[in-house]
Amino acid sequence: MYVTIEWFYKTPKGTETVFHSAELPAAQALLLAEDMERTGRVKSLHFIDRQENDWSLKELKAYLKEIETEPHNITVYFDGGFDIATRQSGLGCAIYYEQNGKSYRLRKNAFSSELQSNNEAEYAALYLALTELELLDVHHLPICITGDSQVVINQLNGEWPALERNLASWADKIDAKLEALHIQPDYKLIARQENKEADKLATQALKGIAITGASELLK
């Protein structure tokens, strides 16, 4: 989760003002806030998340402690590939997350012969990723959903309308899954070269190479 610190500052002579920080990861914001409190010049201090929810220092501490043993700080990469000649698709996703103080990466791909276009394959790849999040028991968390498909990202964040019936159906399925898991998505469009891992997984699926599993990322 990312938050902004709202710091009501008071000088020794009683002059007061309000400062707002840049957006920060919640754990980093908490460390800074605790350091601010040690100055003795904090009149009050709050945290504002991306959904405009207001958190106190105590509430944010409790939240971070609660999610420590569960997957959190999640970033999803997805990509879909469609072979026009064979009418076959490859789906790929990579999920990065933290749990119990460690960092992990989950990779998953899948083959499909039931999709009709590259855009539909992109949607199916994202749905595959959300299914993996459900298996990880991810819920009630903000996540970053990252991909190079302008169609999928812009349709899901509401900037573009989903006029094709099959794509609108996929968008509805994804919205329903996110709502069921109480996940707040933050959609991020990236360049194709930044999405090489998910692209490779999708290509491997098209070649009949199945990839699945999670591994710890050593620092």
Score class of each variant (00 low, 15 high):
L64A: 01
I153W: 11
G158S: 10
E37T: 04
Q155E: 12
D54R: 06
E59R: 09
A176G: 07
Q51S: 13
N195E: 07
G208A: 15
R50G: 07
G14Q: 02
E59T: 03
L30K: 02
I84K: 15
W7H: 13
N157D: 15
V42E: 01
Q88P: 01
V18M: 12
L156N: 11
L45C: 11
D186K: 05
A202S: 15
A27H: 06
N109Q: 09
D79V: 09
R50W: 06
E52H: 12
E122C: 05
A168D: 13
T86Q: 10
Y127F: 15
F8Y: 15
Q28D: 03
Y127M: 08
A210D: 13
E194K: 13
E159C: 09
E132M: 05
E66Y: 02
S149E: 02
K43L: 15
R107T: 03
Q88Y: 05
P185G: 08
D83T: 14
G40R: 10
A191R: 15
D172C: 03
L201I: 02
Q99N: 10
T203W: 08
N118I: 09
P142I: 06
Q28S: 08
A171C: 09
K200T: 10
L141K: 14
K108M: 05
G90K: 04
D148C: 10
I183S: 08
K196M: 06
T131C: 09
V42C: 04
D172F: 08
L206K: 14
A121F: 03
L24I: 01
A198N: 07
L163Q: 08
G147V: 02
A198I: 10
E37P: 04
G158Q: 12
L128N: 06
E68G: 00
S56D: 12
P71I: 02
L57K: 01
A94H: 00
M1A: 11
F111H: 15
A205S: 12
T15W: 10
P25C: 08
L32A: 00
A85L: 11
R50H: 12
L60R: 01
P185H: 05
V18W: 06
L91S: 11
A180K: 15
A121G: 04
W160E: 08
L163D: 06
Q155L: 08
N195M: 06
T75P: 11
A210Y: 11
K43T: 13
A124P: 07
A26I: 01
T212F: 04
K188W: 05
A94E: 01
E70G: 03
K108T: 09
W160I: 07
H20Y: 11
R41A: 05
E132I: 01
E98H: 13
L60G: 00
P25G: 10
E16R: 14
V18S: 04
L189F: 03
E179Q: 07
G40N: 02
N100R: 15
Y77C: 13
I74H: 14
S149N: 07
T15Y: 14
E68D: 05
E197N: 05
T146W: 10
E34F: 02
N119L: 07
P142G: 12
I153C: 03
K173R: 15
V3F: 11
Y63L: 00
T86I: 03
H140P: 06
A26C: 08
C144R: 15
P12D: 10
E6G: 04
R107F: 04
A94S: 10
